[in-house]
Structure formats: structure tokens, C-alpha cells
Design a protein around this nucleic acid. Structure first.
Lengths: 336, 336
DNA sequence: CTTGGCACTCAAGCCGGGGGAGTGCCAAGC
DNA sequence: GCTTGGCACTCCCCCGGCTTGAGTGCCAAG
């Protein structure tokens, strides 16, 4: 009973603070929310909540603001992800439908998510890991240089140019191409290593190093690029919350690092996950929250999608948007 | 004589303001620069310069700051692009050398330029226009869907998936591929339209619409993507100049639009060009300056590279950096 | 446990008055 | 005629003190 009201108070504080961005006092609270008790009672509850670390006051004699722990409690007690309105779903669907290729899908998703949440959006390219090889092309650029183009079933295309240790003929390239094709077409990208083993040895000694170089690059491309790219959008939205950050610079800097973005989307699962403030692994981003979810073909998670914003964000709304976009991305991936 | 000194005064004002970012007064000027006259004389010159619109004062009884016109005069009188130090050149060269593919070259260039200038860097992908077709791959994803991969001599790879009006066989794809290849390999991307004319008619009626769809997409890819992508980096540097802008938001927003970025790099030539404040075509960016240059294979300009920052930037240094990176990009393109 | 009352605290906003940097103008000097 | 030192003037900026008001904690009564 008492616990219930305290929770309601916390919830009200979070909601109020998220929308006004100003410390909220006991009086304002009883006026704006149907808590059914007087401000004095709320004050007692607030003192208790502060004691437990859920809220804090910026200065004595100011209202309270939620702490990271407070947001955490708030998020944990949400009753499931609130569904979007049919109109919103239709908008998303329409927005993503017109994409011409994978790059376009990614770009549109980022834009969409940034617009929906009015925050910074992150979309990761589908991993090659769960995907199979659709096609491989080897183009001879010169006698000592070839270009590899690897096409994955997800629609992702990886290209690498390789400098060869020795000149090779067009015939060698053709031969290598056909052997590689039979070896890896339709295989999982993660299995390539075993599949291509010993393949270089089938070539005469003078061509062997070149074959090895190409195979090595191919492996490198599948492994290294595994989850390399994350697309980013909506950074302008950060500026709108300028006063939430002492300074924008470190945040923007962190967001320019692919490595950082990858860590943010790191351990996503199918569910929507929320990282609040200090829970965040990246130091420069510990004044922000990240809402992320995985998407992928069927149950396998191919990559992550998420949103980054100030800790005082609209969690329910953001979670709903991220969830929805992840769903649509999964569907698009399936259709391909 | 008099004109000479006024110019020297303007130059000193620009230099001082660029480095201190504070309105500069007559007294500070004679102390810090060897102008050889008294502050009273400088005051007269300043009054004249203000009359002519080169400088302005934020308030009465404050120092002067250069106007856009003042910067323009300053930039126009620069004696050529100042060369970078050998050490810097070596650093650039090393930095760009390790790139594995075109994407990587672009990414490294952006990063490099942002670091060198401590501002926002823009690098445009080389246009297909001046380039020739290196290879085309058509992959049959399903009976009614194919993936086109077009590889240009610049190293750029364009991919498109095409939904076909009717199911096609693997044989059709093979046939179309070989005909397209003989038609367009080695041709300029701009000439494809003529080259592929009538090609669809060589196929039986049931396959013709599919062939047409594929050819149309191919054309679309070469035309539309002609100068589509601009890579952006160093946005964090904008935050460092926060007080130079009333608000960062519109600037960041503008920078998220590819269209805007293209306009910024619009009419670049081989020379370094400078757009100062209001000279800028994009309204939201009229409080910024853009220093840009073209790069490309030999004399042909394939794309642009540039830097965006506050109007009070270090023009000589920025111009030198942009120039150098453009040069190196051209060289890399040539080597490919 | 809740509630109204009350004293207390402290950030924010509002003067008002130096202080200082910088200007414009003027009259004298080269 | 340009340059220069002098001088009065103008405002921005900073500082300290004051008031105001929102918000709190505590207490005693219901």
C-alpha cells in the first residue's frame, strides 16, 4: 500500500521531470497528478525515496529530480512495451518500404528513428555471421591487383582490393573464382575458414602466394567487418538538450567512434534493453541513456538498433519506437 | 601607402580575432603587431575600415570584429596557399596509406581533415561520371529478383536490387550479363545510356520487360548516384565553438542533409575555394564558412573535399590542409 | 499514517554602482 | 595633410546586496 504510493510518486516525478525538465516539488506534484494525498505526505515519501537513492535534489530547497536508479526503477516497472498507434505503424512501414538497397534501408531507418524519438538514432548493419554467401566476384584490376566483392544474403556487399605478391593471369583469376564459388556459395560466412582450407595448395607454386593473399583478405573481410558499421543520425537532436549536458563535445566525440557505437549496441537481444546513465559502458556517455534492441532474420539477432539521448528521456515512447523499428527491420531482412 | 597600412590593420584584426575570439581594440593591436604607428592612427584606420564595411563593433565602446566582407578581403589578399611542413605531409601520407578500400579512404580522409583543421570535414565520393565501368555483376536472388553490382574504375561499388515484372531463368541472367558486359565494360559511366540502347529488344518478348527493368535500374544507379554521397566527420569540433553560434541545432540539422552537403561542395574546381558566411548558399549555414577543393584523376574533378567551421577560422591553415588532402586523394585515385 | 502550519534555506532575479576597455574628437606637431 | 597625445564619454561587465518565492523539514494535532 505504502510502497504502491511511493512508486506512484516516483513515476509522477519521472514523468513530470521528463516533460518539464525542471526539478519537481511536492506541491506541483499533488496539483498535477491524482495522488489523493496532501503535499506533506508526498514530502515524506520524497524524503524516503531520496533516502533510498531514487531521487535527489540539485540544491537544498529545490525540487527533486530522478537519479539513474530512479529511472531504472521506473523503467523496470513499465508494464511491457506500449504499442504504437496504427497510424504510426503505417508511417513506419511506408517510410521503410521505398528503400532501394541495404544502404538505403539503413539510412532510412536511422532517419526514421531519429524523427520518431527526436533523439540520436543508431542502426547497425546486419552481421555477416548469421548470413550466407550469395556471391563472390573477383575482378582483375591489374596483373598484381584484384578486387574482391562479397555479397551476403542479407544484401550486404563487402569489397576489398588486394595487392598480390606476384603477377597473375586472367586464367588464374577465373580458376580461383570458380573454385572459391563452389567452396563457399551458400555457406555461412563464419564457416568460410574451414571451407577454404587447403584451397591455395591446389595452385602451382608461383600462384600459391597470390591465392593465399586473396583467401586471407576474404577471411579478414568476413571476420573483421562482422559488425563493423553503425550508422548514426539525428545528432542535431542532442543540441536541443544542450543544457542537459555540461558540454556536448565529449558526447559528439564519442559518437564519432565506431568502436563506441558498437559497444553501445553491444549485447542486444531480441528484447528492448535500456542502459541508463552510469550503467553505460562508455565513460563519456554516462550522462546519456541508450535504448536498444536487436533485429534479425527470424530469431537470430543480426544486428542492433537503438537510440541515445539524455537520461531524462521519454522511456516508454522511445522503447516503443525502437521496438517497432527493430521489428520492421527484421521483416525487411526476411523478405530479402 | 595608406591603403597598405589599412590592409595590414585589417589583417592584424582578423588574425587577432581568429585566435582570441574577442573584439580587438586599437591599443591591443599596436601592442601585439608591429604596425609602427600609434593607437590613435589605428583608430582612424579602423573608423575608415568600418565605414567601408570590413569590420564592425558589437557595441559602442567595444573592440572591432571582422565582417564577412573583412574576411573576404583577408582571404583574397592571401599570397597563395601556404605549404604544409614536410612532417605534416608525411603524417597525411602515412595516415591515408593504410586504407583497404574506397570506403576506408573516404573515412580516413574525413578523420584526417577533421583532425588537421579541428573543424567539420566533408569528403565526397568520387563521381562515376568521369569514371569507366570496371565490372558488372548480376546475381539472381530469386526468380523475380536480381542484385546488380556495378564496379567503377575509381573503386566505387554501386549495388541495387531489382524486382522483376516476370520470373526469369538463370540462363537469362547469364545471357544478359554477357551482353551487358561487352556493351559497357571500359566505357564511361555517362555513356551507358547510348551503349545499352536496344539491348533489351534482343531478348524474347517474355523476358524483355525484365531486361528493361534491369537496364533502367542500372542507368538510374549511374545517374542518380553520380555524386550522391558525402561523408562527414568532426562534428564534435562544432561544439568547441559553441558560443560562435546562437544555437548549434540548425547547423547540425543542415549537416545531416546530403543535399545540403552536396551544395556546399557544389561548384568546386581544382583550386581551393572559400565561402564566407553569407556567401554560403545554405541559409542555416550562413554563420559558417566553407573551404573546399576538388580532387580527381589528373585534371578532371571527380568530387569535392572541404571543411566547415565558424567564420572566424584560421583560413590560411584550413586552406592549406584542404589543399593537401585534395592532392593526396587525387594521387590515391590515380594509383588505383 | 496523514495533514496543516511554520520557520528556514537557498537559487534566481533585480538593482546600482564602480571599473575598465575602447571610442571619437580635437588641437598640436611633423 | 597625416599622425599623435590627451581627454571626455559610453557602455559592457562584474560584483555585492537585496528581495522573492518555491520548496523543504519538522512538529504537533487529527
Amino acid at each position: 500500500m505504502l510502497e504502491d504510493r511511493r512508486l506512484a510518486v516516483l513515476r509522477a516525478i519521472v514523468e513530470d521531470y521528463v516533460c518539464t525538465r525542471e526539478p519537481v516539488g511536492s506541491k506541483a506534484l499533488v496539483e498535477r497528478y491524482p495522488l489523493g494525498v496532501s503535499s506533506a505526505t508526498i514530502r515524506n515519501d520524497m524524503a524516503a525515496l531520496e533516502e533510498e537513492g531514487y531521487i535527489a535534489q540539485p540544491h537544498t530547497s529545490a525540487g527533486r529530480i530522478p537519479t539513474d536508479l530512479g529511472y531504472r526503477a521506473f523503467v523496470d516497472r513499465l508494464s511491457g512495451v506500449k504499442p504504437l498507434s496504427p497510424a504510426e505503424r503505417r508511417a513506419i512501414s511506408n517510410f521503410l518500404a521505398g528503400a532501394v538497397d541495404l544502404d538505403d534501408v539503413m539510412a532510412r531507418s536511422v532517419r526514421l528513428l531519429a524523427q520518431l524519438t527526436r533523439q540520436v538514432a543508431l542502426v547497425q548493419y546486419p552481421s555477416l555471421v548469421q548470413s550466407t554467401v550469395l556471391h563472390l566476384e573477383i575482378v582483375r584490376l591489374s596483373s598484381t591487383r584484384v578486387l574482391l566483392v562479397l555479397i551476403a544474403a542479407t544484401g550486404r556487399v563487402e569489397q576489398r582490393s588486394v595487392d598480390l605478391p606476384a603477377p597473375v593471369s586472367e586464367g588464374f583469376v577465373t580458376a580461383l573464382r570458380s573454385r572459391l564459388l563452389t567452396a563457399i556459395i551458400g555457406q555461412r560466412c563464419t564457416d568460410l575458414s574451414g571451407r577454404m582450407e587447403g584451397l591455395a595448395e591446389q595452385f602451382p607454386a608461383d600462384e600459391r602466394p597470390s591465392a593465399q593473399a586473396i583467401i586471407a583478405t576474404l577471411l579478414e573481410a568476413t571476420v573483421e567487418s562482422e559488425e563493423r558499421r553503425v550508422m548514426l543520425g539525428g545528432t542535431a537532436n542532442l543540441a536541443r538538450y544542450r543544457d542537459s549536458f555540461s558540454t556536448l563535445e565529449p558526447v559528439l566525440e564519442a559518437l564519432e567512434e565506431q568502436v563506441v557505437l558498437l559497444r553501445l549496441l553491444g549485447e542486444v537481444s531480441g528484447q528492448v534493453s535500456v542502459r541508463i546513465g552510469h550503467e553505460n559502458p562508455v565513460e563519456d556517455l554516462q550522462s546519456t541513456s541508450v535504448v536498444a534492441a536487436g533485429y534479425g532474420r527470424g530469431s537470430a539477432v543480426a544486428a542492433g538498433v537503438g537510440v541515445l539521448g539524455p537520461t531524462h528521456m521519454d522511456y516508454p515512447g522511445t522503447m516503443a519506437a525502437v521496438h517497432a523499428v527493430a521489428q520492421y527491420l527484421s521483416r525487411i531482412l526476411d523478405e530479402n
